[in-house]
Write a protein that binds this DNA or RNA. Structure first.
Ligand code: FES
Ligand code: FES
Lengths: 156, 156
DNA sequence: GTAAATCCTACTGATTCGGTAGGAATTATG
DNA sequence: CATAATTCCTACCGAATCAGTAGGATTTAC
């Protein structure tokens, strides 16, 4: 229950790109410096994000990266999936068609809970776009996760 | 975004104890066999659960483990916390009083989202009890099963 | 007394994680 | 064209975590 630095860094970097959206490409070095991330490490994250079509890269001098879509079109869940692979709490939740692992368990009482938890996580992640994040809110509008009555106020 | 086998095993084992609740103590070997978990490994998990006061152990022949509280009183979140430590997606979410890490970031746009995600996860985990799980449901309808019933005194 | 069980501490092999290293390929600019 | 800036690619590395083992000490029912 801890998000990897891959995810942390990746999301922060994407926010950075989102803020520069509309302007020219942003160099990796610039993003890395602003966010305090190792350049070489971020390079790998961007490679993954690019492979998934979330960002577009311009090679050569004055090149850099830009969002491939509008900030409002990129969900945090997309970023996470690009960096970590499909969100699957348990092996048996990875692919619905081939649930061989759970088949063996059969009466696994935990399964429904994991499904619910995974759905909850996915729902939150997919109801927040980069647009929401740079706007300061965390996308609490279109979210129907029960039990979340806490309202965080982005101060400062 | 993957739950450790510690969590998976731990919850399954606790369900096993919940099903045997009311009867005598259940030997670790029995739980391990039924759930297909390494005995020696499960031993360590039970040690953690015991230290957190979730289960009670009876040493010696015919000994074993029993839930320290009624199944309706034990939330999945309690189990997860006992096994993995406090649920903290990000370092800066670990302890609210000492958020030094985020202080440095200041304008970290991701923070509110992580808070929200963590709250969502915690909420789901804490709204499901072992009682819910052995009943077949995963607590999706009602989490008001906080019905206080009598239980034997967990001493020590 | 003995067998059944928990308890405790340490070790280990494999994998993942976070990060480095070095260079090849591409491109704007002068 | 030359050069500098920049992305792209692949491999490697140390440390940490993970899942599991090993071996024995202790407690207790019978
Ligand atoms: S075997 Fe898949 S959730 Fe239990
Ligand atoms: S620094 Fe804590 S969430 Fe960004």
């Amino acid at each position: 229950m801890k998000l990897s630095s891959r995810t942390e860094y990746g999301v922060r970097a994407m926010v950075e790109l989102a803020e520069a959206h509309g302007g020219g490409p942003v160099a990796l070095r610039e993003v890395a410096e602003k966010q305090g991330i190792s350049e070489k490490y971020l390079e790998q994250l961007f490679a993954a994000l690019r492979k998934e079509g979330l960002i577009y890269s311009q090679r050569g001098a004055q090149g850099g990266y830009t969002l491939a879509k509008a900030p409002g079109e990129i969900r945090v869940g997309d970023i996470v999936r690009a960096l970590e692979g499909p969100i699957a709490l348990c092996d048996c939740l990875a692919n619905e068609e081939d649930d061989a692992v759970c088949e063996r368990m059969g009466e696994c009482a935990a399964h429904p809970l994991w499904v619910k938890l995974q759905d909850g996580i996915t729902s939150i992640l997919d109801s927040t776009t980069l647009q929401d994040m740079i706007a300061g809110a965390s996308g609490d509008s279109a979210n129907d996760i029960r039990g979340n009555s806490e309202e965080e106020s982005p101060n400062e």
